[in-house]
Amino acid sequence: MNKIQVITSINHEEVEFLCEPQETLLDVLRDTLGRTGTKEGCATGDCGACSVLVDDRLVCSCLVLAAETGGREITTIEGIATEEGLHPIQQKFLDHAALQCGVCTPGLIIATKSLLDRHPDPDETTIRYWLAGNLCRCTGYDKIVRAVQDVARDLAGPA
């Protein structure tokens, strides 16, 4: 089968890959590029484990064709921490024990980033609806929501 050449940017790094027309961004990230931090829970857009940002838009990478990502800016879990260390969202997830098995965590951290980029001071309902596309079977969401609230509080700074 003829492969398609794609040049795009992942976590601010230019990346070039070849893919088949039906391959998803998730397949390419995980299998072609070895970025396995993005997880697959369903491949049908129902669990959010594969969440990434494409041009700052929260998407399920299992629903995006890799061939369509040329010239975009893609953010994956591998691009969230910086030289300075963990992103505050990552740190608060750890502090609040917001992960048990941790397989939903990359997707939830990406979704949280997308939420806080748009709504720096969300109320609980906003958090719960924004994260409703990300299944977690272990935690019951309580500690995840608290972690997100805590990040938001810190972002708001001292009152």
């Binding site: 049908t44 958090i127 719960r128 609806y129 409703a132 596309g133 299944l135 969401y141």
Partner: peptide
């Protein structure tokens, strides 16, 4: 997961 409906954050 769409039709086997497990709780999501907004359900709880």
């Amino acid at each position: 997961f769409l039709d086997y409906r497990m709780p999501v954050a907004s359900d709880l």
